[in-house]
Design a protein around this nucleic acid. Structure first.
Lengths: 394, 394
DNA sequence: TCCGTTCTTTTCCGCCGTCAATAAAAGAAG
DNA sequence: CTTCTTTTATTGACGGCGGAAAAGAACGGA
């Protein structure tokens, strides 16, 4: 394996140690007996796994204790020291690069974004590298080293190989992005699909913590879906998974860029909504914000468009629930800004279309700040750091 | 754990041993070095795992060798001795009980079926018990003990708990079927959903061998789907998964018993096809066989119905492929008798609706003899036998 | 001060799988 | 016919991980 100067290896020498660390990472301060219970290990094993992690400074005793049950030896909760390591997450969209500096607990310390006009790999790589350098300089201010870089790109990405197989928005094909970025930054790089990266963030640091089966649905420029089944993110045998955007909702609906008609994305994604509102109102609506505005001010045509969109999203989510029976679906994305306009329709359509006990699946909405995508990328870098780099061993 | 007299424990004392055994079970005769490669273990570990299994007679050296590479010590392939143990699989439908006696390799030795008119649990249990006794008597003829009983029921089944939570066709609710059957038969009993059982059979003994992600789609009285993701069968957090039959294909389509319109099942399941053919032709078509007959003889109305059904199935399969990106979809079920009538439409609709590389997923059809469902139940029993009973430890 | 309780660590032990060396079973070479 | 080469399988030593049980530690209460 290539030696990356300046980065250190995470001292989890056994799978159990990594498991315990991630348990503490996700579930906040935990006593050792809690860890043993959650991880299904003996208390002795916990002690042995925790020691090297504390010695290395990744775990610390949590002084801020309260509400102890007043009997017996007081418990000694342990938490992750987020400040022990930093990570950079980068999301590359078709017209913008968003980068964040996060700590080990995936809390954002610094966020930056720059516009992107040239989509050639070379130019993009240079922009990303420059942004990474800026954040590395910021990291110096914290006196802590950056241990990894995560990059999120939409499209078909092979995380294990570190390659972008095909990215429609960027028009990239078979680009060994991880290797290239490692050359320019000197950091271990993890590349993943953007929706999957967001799903990883939810799984470790968000509303998916502790769940073995859940889905993340993103509504915005497109409609995407990340799936976790049996505790692991689904990648699909051929790189495609969670394409909820192309579930056909209405075969007589508007045409979709995929070649079919009435896909969820062709009804409920931002461009589709804007187009439909424009057609319904005959007004020169330019973007989603104007469409939302119009609907909020009570325009019946616009409201109807949002109602339809909500129904489409609800039906698409129900399809996911019927097929894989998740415990929870987390709805997120920029499109959530319009949530008040279609929340009811989403729930109604979901309830109507969910079959049997699949309807018990709970729907959760989660606001998506603009830097959340980049945070997802950082989460993948954290994941790689903890589980050890698995790529590039050939 | 309850001691089940007459049955013995499988001598796989370590997870690695069980893994190696199932590898040999699924991949036919293998040399020890092959096993090591496939299981990701060292040759030494294989030797140690194989020995007790051979001593117990579950593995035997495969004398029938051929085509050796003529250099070095000849390899010594090992295979599972199917005749070492027998299993009973039972499928309970709304009007029939099908039971098979299989060997350890899930090859059917004897098959029986009896009609079922009383759906009360008591009566059904009595019928199943009688059938099991018959097969146990047959097993005596082979001089080999029956080591387990698998029962497959449609609906919401909790395999771990051994309970039928809800079976619409049988009108059962919260029935501790495994426990009851263990009392009457004295065998370890595994209860599972019928489609999942079929999926297990494909995963271990069929077209799903060696695949970590695939789907089984059944077409017949209903439309079902079993999913394997990350090498494990998906059960759904609330017991529901793979409900492909209620993917909405056409919101203006015929009403479905689930309350929606245009579900795949309301278009392409046997009853829906019969009803549609009857309406299209104004002929008193009684069952699927007559409908197929009519279509094969060229009736345009009937052919159109099948074409629509094929399109619905293809779209439903594409939905699964888009969401979880399986390597393969295995199409099966009684409805496959009409395969020549809609094969083309299934493939065309799948190709049109599959997104990107998800279309690389290969579609495979597989005839489904009447006793295949029961064989699936036997496969679950074999699985439980090998991995050790996990139920009833509370 | 002693005791009971609860959390944590220590010590010992068994088990499993790998490593490296060895044995085994052929055909090929001399 | 012996010896070498090649590939497969087995053996035995070793190390590491995790568990059981006992000891230790930290507290409140009697």
């Amino acid at each position: 394996m290539r030696s990356t100067p300046g980065t250190e290896a995470f001292p989890a020498h056994t799978p159990a140690a990594a498991q315990i660390f991630t348990t503490v990472l996700s579930h906040g301060p935990l006593t050792r007996s809690d860890m043993a219970g959650r991880a299904g290990l003996s208390a002795a094993a916990v002690t042995k796994a925790v020691r090297p992690l504390m010695e290395a400074g990744y775990l610390v005793e949590d002084a801020g204790d309260e509400a102890r049950p007043s009997l017996g030896r007081p418990a000694n909760p342990v938490r992750v020291d987020g400040g022990r390591a930093l990570f950079i997450g980068v999301k590359i969209t078709g017209n913008e690069i968003i980068a964040v500096l996060t700590d080990l607990c995936c809390r954002i310390r610094v966020a930056r974004h720059v516009p992107l006009d040239d989509r050639e790999p070379k130019a993009v790589l240079a922009s990303v590298a420059a942004l990474a350098q800026e954040l590395l300089a910021e990291a110096d201010g914290f006196g802590v080293r950056v241990q990894g870089l995560g990059v999120a790109v939409s499209g078909d990405v092979d995380r294990a190989a570190g390659e972008v197989r095909f990215s429609p928005f960027l028009e990239w094909r078979d680009l060994p992005l991880a290797e290239l970025m490692e050359m320019t930054t000197g950091l271990p790089v993890t590349v993943d699909n953007d929706v999957r990266a967001l799903t990883v963030a939810e799984q470790w640091f968000g509303a998916g913590v502790g769940l073995s089966d859940f889905a993340v649905v993103t509504v915005g420029a497109g409609i995407g879906c990340g799936l976790v089944v049996h505790g692991k993110v689904v990648s699909g045998a051929y790189g495609v998974a969670g394409e909820i955007g192309h579930v056909v909702i209405d075969p007589t609906g508007p045409p979709c860029h995929c070649g079919n008609r009435g896909c969820a994305e062709a009804i409920a994604a931002d461009p589709a909504i804007v187009a439909a509102v424009r057609e319904a109102t005959r007004l020169p609506v330019a973007d989603a914000a104007q469409a939302v505005d119009l609907a909020r001010r009570g325009d019946p045509g616009a409201r109807e468009v949002y109602a339809r969109a909500g129904e489409a999203i609800g039906r698409a989510i129900a399809t996911v629930a019927n097929l894989m029976g998740p415990q929870r679906v987390i709805i997120s994305g920029e499109g959530l800004a319009a949530y008040d306009l279609f929340a009811e329709q989403i729930r109604d359509a979901f309830t109507a279309s969910a079959f049997g006990t699949a309807a018990q699946c709970d729907l959760l909405t989660r606001p998506l700040p603009f830097d959340e995508w980049a945070r997802g990328a950082a989460a993948t870098a954290i994941q790689s750091f903890i589980s050890g780099p698995t790529r590039g061993q050939g």
